[in-house]
């Protein structure tokens, strides 16, 4: 199966929620030293639910599509559900075969989301 499926390219072309929020409850920045990619991720939390989410960053098609799909997935979810979200699910969500190096690109947004929840709990 092709890595650059129509779905991946579609999210890359028109990423969902690719902007930062006005008043986020939490904002984090993650960096992938391998490729130099950076992602900023915002979450707005209300009543223990992710009310809104957004991201800003530069990166390859895989990391950008992953961020776009992850935003769709997170909005509306309970805060606690992020803890139960694992890399396997994110890779399944992308639906394309990934080498270990490219899996790092795909997982950067998830790392950012988990980091955001940790930060939120410390606030």
């Amino acid at each position: 199966m092709d890595l650059y499926s129509e779905i991946i390219l579609d999210h890359y072309r028109n990423p969902h929620h690719a902007r930062l929020l006005q008043k986020p409850s939490v904002r984090v920045k993650e960096h992938n030293p391998l490729c130099g990619d950076t992602i900023e991720l915002d979450l707005l939390i209300q009543n223990d639910h992710i009310e809104n989410a957004g991201f800003k960053g530069t990166g390859c098609a895989i990391s950008q599509a992953s961020a776009s799909m992850l935003m769709d997935m997170l909005i509306g979810k309970k805060v606690g559900s992020v803890k139960k979200l694992f890399s396997k699910q994110v890779i399944a969500m992308l639906g394309v075969p990934l080498s270990p190096a490219r899996a790092k690109c795909a997982l950067l947004p998830l790392v950012a989301a988990k980091h955001a929840i940790l930060k939120l709990n410390l606030q």
Partner: peptide, 13 residues
């Protein structure tokens, strides 16, 4: 408008 990682991936293919 193509990230170098994507270029290298297609080259590898």
């Amino acid at each position: 408008s193509v990230h170098p990682h994507d270029v290298a991936t297609v080259f590898n293919q």
